[in-house]
């Protein structure tokens, strides 16, 4: 396996930081009609507390499938996913819902805000059901939207909507923040603003953050860059120095 040497490298980090996710031998096959698609082929991966990871890869490389499995939206065909000693592979729907409710924050490409709720209410939606949330206003201030809290999604720009989505994701103080192409629908400048918000949250709250993208330019802001192709991890690269989002170019 090409990733063997990298895995040894990353095991050194284990010493300094605890592993949040342990992914072992995970495969995922979909049967679509008469065709069987292998979306993931025996993936091994650890995500550590507080790190910022970028998952790079072309479309169809399996990065979204992996993210869905990490987020408890999907279960692997084989292998094991352990989140803080809890086996997600054998969890039922109720347990997965609780896992998402308490531990995971999601940011989607198309924001997925509730159009009938204001920015504050979209955040409150989550804070109402989380055990120890931050105040919705605080969450929105963290993404520099303290002055837009009573706006409806239709009154916000795309970048603002995405930042509301980030505020909504972090307001529950999740252990992990999973972002699927968060800048995919945004222009360069706005995309950078959103990435800055993500970096800020990661730095301030220490939330483990995994960002999926096919935009290699973003990789420079990560602690680690995981590259996938055809359902496999091909490289795991440790960035010696992180670049701030403001300096990114693509």
């Amino acid at each position: 396996m090409t990733s063997t040497s990298q895995t040894q490298d990353s095991s050194e980090i284990l010493v300094s930081s605890a592993s949040l996710f342990q992914v072992r031998g995970v495969t995922k096959t979909y049967v679509m009609g008469e065709v069987t698609v292998e979306a993931l082929r025996s993936v091994d991966l650890d995500l550590y507390e507080g790190e910022f990871v970028v998952l790079l890869g072309p479309s169809g490389s399996g990065k979204s499938t992996l993210l869905n499995i990490l987020g408890g939206l999907d279960v692997p065909s084989s292998g094991q996913v352990i989140f803080q000693r809890q086996d997600l592979t054998t969890a039922n729907d109720r347990t997965l819902t609780r896992f998402r409710r308490q531990s995971v924050g999601f940011v989607f490409q198309f924001y997925n805000l509730i159009p009938s709720l204001t920015a504050r209410e979209n955040v409150a939606l989550v804070t109402d059901i989380a055990p120890q949330p931050m105040h919705p206003r605080e969450a929105l201030e963290r993404v520099q939207l303290g002055n837009r809290i009573n706006h409806f999604p239709a009154q916000l720009s795309g970048g603002e909507q995405q930042r509301v989505a980030i505020a909504r994701a972090i307001a529950k103080r999740p252990q992990v923040l999973l972002c699927d192409e968060p800048t995919g629908a945004l222009d360069f400048q706005t995309g950078k603003l959103v990435l800055e918000a993500l970096a800020q949250v990661n730095q301030d709250l220490g939330t483990t953050t995994a960002v999926i993208t096919h935009n290699a330019g973003i990789a420079a802001m990560a602690d680690r860059v995981i590259t996938m192709r055809s359902g496999e991890i091909v490289t795991v690269q440790q960035n010696e120095t992180k670049v701030s989002p403001g300096e990114l170019e693509w």
């Binding site: 924050g105 509730i114 939606l125 059901i129």
Partner: peptide, 16 residues
């Protein structure tokens, strides 16, 4: 359905 699915993803139960 999109809105409802989003709510499911962020942790709402079927009942909710």
């Amino acid at each position: 359905s999109r809105e409802l699915a989003t709510l499911r993803i962020i942790g709402f139960t079927q009942g909710e």
